[in-house]
């Protein structure tokens, strides 16, 4: 008897967790019907995925007034979203320093805040530049100078 009860219980539990089929039915009087095809985004966490590719090092040749660089965005986001990338100095301003802390000032030009045009883009390219005035070059001792720029990406409303 116990075996019968446990078998019945097992069958009840199996039926309880079964996903109902929600089948539609056509027959002699209902000869056509529609079925909804839909995507399930429950497996997607957050707003989707994206990649921003930017130069790890931006080499400037001595005496060059303007050096152009680019960063690229590829994204697959939820509808209504876009990627925004900000290029900025988070330290002591736009100054390259040498080992003696002598400065070589520069400015940023071009698209230092870039925003994609939609949720899905492939290698969307944004151009920016590093500019060093000729007077700055002329006043600088020959040396190696460097600074750090920070690239920050966020998902924003399109």
């Amino acid at each position: 008897m116990k075996k019968v009860i446990s078998l019945v219980m097992a069958l009840v539990m199996m039926m309880a967790i079964m996903v109902p089929a929600f089948a539609a039915e056509l027959n002699a009087t209902t000869q056509s019907g529609t079925a909804t095809v839909q995507t399930d985004t429950s497996a997607i966490t957050g707003d989707g995925t994206y990649t921003v590719t930017y130069p790890a090092t931006m080499n400037i040749v001595w005496s060059t007034a303007t050096t152009n660089f680019e960063y690229k965005v590829s994204s697959n986001l939820r509808t209504g979203k876009a990627i925004q990338v900000v290029v900025a100095d988070t330290g002591d301003g736009l100054n390259m320093l040498n080992a003696s802390n002598a400065t070589l000032a520069y400015t940023l030009g071009g698209t230092t805040t870039g925003k994609t045009t939609g949720p899905v883009v492939t290698d969307a390219t944004f151009n920016y530049s590093i500019n060093v005035d000729s007077a700055v070059w002329a006043a600088a001792a020959i040396d190696t100078y460097s600074d750090t720029l920070t690239f920050t990406s966020t998902v924003v409303d399109a």
Partner: peptide, 17 residues
């Protein structure tokens, strides 16, 4: 090249002369 993504939203780049 360096990359940013959902998990790494910020990164540094060196300006070098």
């Amino acid at each position: 090249a360096a990359t940013l993504d959902v998990n790494t939203q910020s990164g540094n780049s060196t300006v070098l002369v």
